[in-house]
């Protein structure tokens, strides 16, 4: 469908262009970043902004659709961090290591400390700890 060159349409199209650039950057990020966690930083978050901008731009092209498009944006904003958090947490629990250049991992340190403490109490009480 051809669109007339009204100012509103132009703003919408430019927003869509910026958004799709961020979509592309997100995909480039997952190729360039070294490990899963950094991939997530680049991939899922840059695509969130890309999503917001693209959908807003397309919404400006079709002003009557804005309520529904805002609903889709809200849905993406709520679900996207949850899915990337779930994935990162599962990967960390499964023991996926951080990239070589990483400076510290305080979660692994704390988990190891708790495991050591539990092993110690188990040994001293002579019985298994419930749960």
């Amino acid at each position: 469908m051809t669109m007339p060159d009204t100012p509103l349409n132009l703003i919408g199209a430019v927003l869509t262009l910026f958004g799709s650039m961020f979509l592309f950057l997100g995909a480039l990020g997952i190729i360039r970043m070294p490990d899963l966690y950094n991939k997530m930083q680049a991939g899922t978050k840059a695509t969130t902004l890309g999503n917001i901008l693209t959908l807003m731009g397309l919404g400006l092209l079709m002003p009557g659709w804005l309520p529904k498009i805002v609903l889709i944006i809200l849905f993406v904003l709520i679900t996207n961090p949850i899915s990337s958090h779930a994935l990162a947490r599962a990967a960390h629990k499964a023991g996926l290591p951080l990239a070589k250049g990483s400076v510290l991992d305080q979660l692994r340190e704390d988990e190891d400390a708790i495991a050591a403490f539990e092993a110690e109490t188990q040994a001293s009480s002579g019985k298994g700890v419930d749960g």
Partner: peptide
Amino acid sequence: AIILSNLDVAGRILKPQVAINPGIVK
């Protein structure tokens, strides 16, 4: 916050050598 940090990360991705210093903090 989203836009500023997105530009920051985009800059990191586009550098010839990916500029990161990652870790998990409390």
